[in-house]
Write a protein that binds this DNA or RNA. Structure first.
Lengths: 329, 329
DNA sequence: TTGTATGCGTTATCAT
DNA sequence: ATGATAACGCATACAA
């Protein structure tokens, strides 16, 4: 590999002068600047960020830990984070836990060993080991999606969103409303959204039917299976179903189609997340837009502010959301 | 940050000894090993990959350049690449050009400045600047998706796949077959798949109708618009449409639904890519599985082999594909 | 305006 | 079996 020393030699200058040219720092005459630049151009020299950051203690890299790479939510978050950081000259290094929660700590360590300037963690669950790792990390961390006391987080109003969506269903004349959620290890999606659903039922004086409450797991297939389970195990059938993600909803809809249940006439359904495809399926899906782009942007800004020392204390940002009414209710 | 020197001091050893413990290299007595390990544990010391790779000339990082992060194809490729590389102790650093082809060169340079051991480029187009950059890069590069002479590539049989799919449509009794493609800057998808379509028509003695050939751009919206354009501009209407991606197909299907065209009875449609959702929409989409997981795996293996010097000459790998017959034809 | 010297944290060579 | 030391490529304090 070609180094700054060789450039210096070729340009008849010292490495410090080349460094000055590279960084626009200190004095350097126009003449030598041109000479150096010419050599750099000719040789295709690219400075080593490695060496640079070993010296400066700054990598301009933010580590981003995601639970999966296959959902609209994740890709929109990551894109927004990336765009915002790129504007400020930062790059991201992505690591994917593939939903293995136990790997989160491992990935934090891995990224820290790469000396990232900061970390953004899209969290699906919070356990003691992870909590300890986050709290003890000398590298600034921003968590997206789960509320953690004493840690900088960006969260959705999961409870309110689910409650409001359930109320919308109730307003449409339903009182037999099923629910497809996810496991409670995911506090935000598994617990809070379910609590919102229950609160809305309760507020409307509608009794809870346990036969109508089932779990899925963030993909089409388990959405389908959950719907099947709900219909097969219930003595009285629901006329509407609230699901906690669009993917689950679409899986559930396939079951309905297969069994010739008209949506929304025989059974209504809602998703959450406003995935791009939700608008293009038939019928189009009533869902909740959690403003992922804005969330990603906020996360990027927050981590940079923490790094710059502009944000000293843990900050909690609650994102807004929008109910998107379409044809499935 | 805590360094190897401080560990050495705390453990009453030299930094060389600590290094030996860390890397399981050379002799070190069981006693001191334990002593060192204990200090490492207590302090939470994490070695700096920066410094390490400055010394060893090896980062164990592969740069992956993708055109977008929002499609199934990309996320499955990246996941497969990541899984395979992780097995061998490599990490990936992802950069996203957001479909701005001119940024590819910039990203290659960016990643090279990070001293990545190798690069995997998911290409959508090939131009002279990019070609020159790839050919001159001292860092090994594997390209996915586009054929480039003299460069290691993993490609699909785009021509054959499109041709075979068109033949399948013809076998189903159609002879008025539309085509929604993408711009020809994308050789594989824009040119080769179109050529396959044309070859199939030609082989069956079906004349080409230019009114039935339109372009979209890898998203639902332009798929919808392309379908609209095709139907509005054509005097005779097609009874089937071949599209080059599932996303485009789903966008087109929405137009059909809106205009009460029954699929496949009034109009048949096919996609390509076997996106997860293609199975769950109604009707389910006939498509082509390009075996993305295997492609990603091959790419990962190839780049590692090149790095290890096991693969000296540029290698071209052609992936297989499977036609997936479902209900849209 | 330019150059010399030092150190960032690590590994590897060479003594001991 | 262990330690002192140099080197990796760069930025910077200081000298010239």
């Amino acid at each position: 590999m070609i180094t700054i020393k060789e450039i210096a030699k070729l340009a008849n200058a010292s490495s410090s002068t080349v460094s000055r040219v590279l960084n626009d720092s200190g004095y350097v005459s126009e003449e030598t600047r041109k000479r150096v630049l010419k050599v750099i151009e000719e040789t295709g020299y690219i400075p080593s960020e490695q060496a640079k950051s070993l010296r400066t203690k700054k990598t301009s890299v933010i580590g981003v830990i995601i639970p999966r790479l296959s959902t609209d939510t994740t890709s929109r978050l990551v894109n927004a984070i990336n765009d915002e950081l790129a504007k400020k000259g930062y790059q991201i290094i992505l690591t994917n836990t593939n939903l293995h929660a136990e790997k989160e700590v491992e990935h934090i360590k891995l990224l820290r060993s790469r000396q990232v300037d900061g970390l953004i963690l899209i969290a699906t669950n919070v356990n003691d080991v992870l909590l300890k790792e986050i709290r003890n990390s000398p590298t600034p961390i921003v968590v997206i999606g789960q509320e953690i006391p004493g840690v900088s987080v960006i969260v959705n109003r999961d409870f309110e969103a689910a409650k409001q969506m359930t109320q919308l269903i109730i307003e449409n004349g339903h009182n037999k409303i099923g629910f497809i959620g996810v496991h409670e290890t995911d506090k935000a999606v598994g617990v809070d959204r379910k609590a919102g659903y229950l609160a809305a039922l309760n507020g409307a004086g509608i009794p809870v039917n346990e036969q109508w409450i089932v779990d899925a797991n963030f993909d089409y297939q388990t959405g389908y299976r959950a719907m099947k389970q709900m219909m097969e195990q219930s003595t009285i059938k629901p006329t509407a179903v609230l699901t906690v993600t669009d993917t689950i909803a679409i899986g559930a809809m396939q079951y309905m189609h297969e069994h010739h249940l008209a949506i929304p006439d025989d059974i209504a359904i809602t998703g959450m997340g406003n995935s791009k495809v939700s608008q293009y399926i038939v019928p189009s899906l009533t869902t909740i837009d959690f403003l992922n782009e804005q969330t990603g942007k906020e996360a990027a800004r927050l981590i940079l502010n923490i790094i710059d020392g502009k944000e000293k204390r843990p900050k909690k940002i609650q994102m807004k959301y929008r109910i998107i009414k379409r044809d499935s209710v």
